[in-house]
Design a protein around this nucleic acid. Structure first.
Lengths: 112, 112
DNA sequence: TTACTATATCACGATATAGTAGTATTCAAG
DNA sequence: CTTGAATACTACTATATCGTGATATAGTAA
């Protein structure tokens, strides 16, 4: 009984919504932004520096992250300070990352 | 101290790999297939019935899931039985789903 | 107002991927 | 060996989205 958990059935619409969320995380640029925000809020120019992305690109991806409710922003004068709105998102990324590592170590074991 | 966890920095390549995994989960058709496989292995024709997808489409998406190591297959005669290779993937989906629900209920609370 | 800065948005070319239709392959039965 | 069934693969079209460059907007300062 390794997996007794009960899972709910998702409707077509539910699947679509879940898929859409995963898609937001399926872009290296956005993951990079999330990681840059991990230590605290940053304004756009700082994020450009931290990520190496262009201004328009940063702004666009932040917009996508914000629409997904993953980040939020606080405006102050000319600056816009973005911050992670939902720490659980980071947990998801970490989980995925851990799984990747585990898979790799499993595969590499075949050569030892 | 709500979040004392230490997170490793990911290289550009690492980000790319994580993003790629999320992308595999960012397609309703693939999520549907994973859910259909939740209760046990299924052969392709059964998956066509369960998901309503066409044969070529099912085969293609299963290929993508397999390449990502999320499902695996066992051949028996003419049939190919696919099964979930990594239960942790389902946990990820469930987490995302739970987060969605939570966000929705939070938003809808503003109207009560 | 005018000028400057930070950010957002728009338009566009390039690329990627979903779905489909048709074809190829593989196995089993006769 | 031939036929039929289950699955995989290939070629194609349509759509979506990334990155970029140009422009628009909003706040600040002189």
């Amino acid at each position: 009984m390794a997996r007794p958990a009960k899972r709910k059935k998702l409707s077509e619409r539910g699947l679509q919504l879940v898929a859409r969320r995963f898609k937001v995380l399926s872009e290296p640029a956005r993951l990079k932004l999330l990681m840059a925000l991990e230590q605290g809020e940053q304004h756009v120019s700082a994020l450009m520096e931290l990520t190496g992305l262009t201004q328009g690109n940063v702004s666009k991806h932040l917009g996508i992250l914000m629409e997904a409710g993953m980040v939020d922003r606080r405006k102050q004068g000319l600056n816009a300070f973005y911050f992670i709105a939902d720490q659980q998102i980071l947990d998801l990324c970490e989980l995925m990352c851990a799984k990747l590592e585990q898979d790799f170590s499993k595969d590499s074991a075949h050569f030892r």
